[in-house]
Structures are given as C-alpha cells and as structure tokens.
Amino acid sequence: MIRLARFGARKQPYYRVVVIEKDRSRNGRSVEVVGTYNPRTSPATVDLKRERIDYWTGKGAQLSDTVAKLLKTPAATPAA
C-alpha cells in the first residue's frame, strides 16, 4: 500500500509518502519512501517520485485515497 506516514512536531505535521505493508501501523517500518507532503507551506508542497510510484503500483500496491488525490494535483512535482 502507498500511504502517508506522519512526521514533524506536535501541531506541525509533515508527511512522507511511503510504500508499506497494509497491516502495519501508520508510522511502522516502510519498504520505501517515495515522496513528501508538507501542508503547512502556502501552497502545500508535494514532491513525489512518480516512476517509483508507477513501479510499485505495477507490482500491485494500492494507493490510499489521500495519495491518489495528491497524484492528481497539478502542484505535484517530481522529486529529483
């Protein structure tokens, strides 16, 4: 599954987009970090490694609803 893992201090959320087994906890050990999402900037910053996301979805990984929305936003720029 590809979903968000929350990081950052209290009331200052920062998220990593991670590939993780579906039954693991939200911040459990992930397989790979494929991007970041920072909602605190204006506008929100989204950096995604699209080719790695395509690789994992090709292997059968499912996107969470939130990650699917982030992929559709035009502000989502590919990470180097």
Results as ranks from 00 to 15, higher is better:
1 M>C: 13
1 M>Q: 12
2 I>H: 12
2 I>F: 15
3 R>L: 13
4 L>G: 11
4 L>Y: 08
4 L>H: 05
5 A>V: 08
6 R>G: 11
8 G>W: 13
9 A>N: 12
11 K>G: 10
11 K>N: 14
12 Q>T: 14
12 Q>Y: 06
12 Q>S: 14
13 P>W: 10
13 P>M: 06
14 Y>E: 13
14 Y>Q: 13
15 Y>H: 04
16 R>I: 06
16 R>M: 05
19 V>E: 05
19 V>C: 03
21 E>Y: 03
21 E>T: 02
22 K>H: 02
23 D>W: 02
23 D>V: 05
23 D>I: 03
25 S>I: 09
27 N>R: 00
27 N>C: 04
27 N>W: 00
28 G>E: 02
29 R>L: 03
30 S>H: 00
30 S>I: 00
32 E>S: 00
32 E>P: 00
33 V>F: 01
33 V>Y: 00
33 V>D: 01
33 V>E: 00
34 V>A: 02
35 G>K: 08
36 T>I: 06
37 Y>V: 00
37 Y>A: 01
38 N>Q: 04
38 N>T: 02
39 P>L: 03
40 R>Q: 07
40 R>Y: 02
41 T>L: 10
41 T>N: 09
41 T>A: 07
42 S>N: 04
42 S>K: 07
44 A>L: 03
44 A>M: 07
44 A>Y: 04
44 A>W: 03
45 T>E: 05
45 T>I: 04
45 T>A: 09
46 V>N: 03
46 V>I: 15
46 V>F: 03
47 D>F: 06
47 D>N: 10
47 D>Y: 09
48 L>A: 03
48 L>N: 02
49 K>P: 02
51 E>I: 05
51 E>K: 10
53 I>N: 04
54 D>R: 08
54 D>C: 06
55 Y>I: 12
55 Y>T: 11
56 W>K: 14
57 T>P: 02
58 G>P: 07
58 G>K: 12
58 G>M: 15
59 K>D: 15
62 Q>R: 11
62 Q>N: 06
63 L>N: 10
64 S>D: 09
65 D>F: 15
67 V>Y: 05
67 V>F: 08
68 A>E: 08
68 A>H: 14
69 K>D: 10
69 K>M: 07
69 K>V: 12
70 L>K: 13
71 L>E: 11
72 K>Q: 14
73 T>P: 01
73 T>C: 12
74 P>R: 10
74 P>H: 13
75 A>K: 08
75 A>R: 12
75 A>M: 09
76 A>G: 11
76 A>E: 12
76 A>Q: 11
76 A>F: 07
77 T>P: 02
77 T>Q: 11
78 P>G: 06
78 P>E: 14
78 P>Y: 02
78 P>N: 08
79 A>P: 02
80 A>M: 06
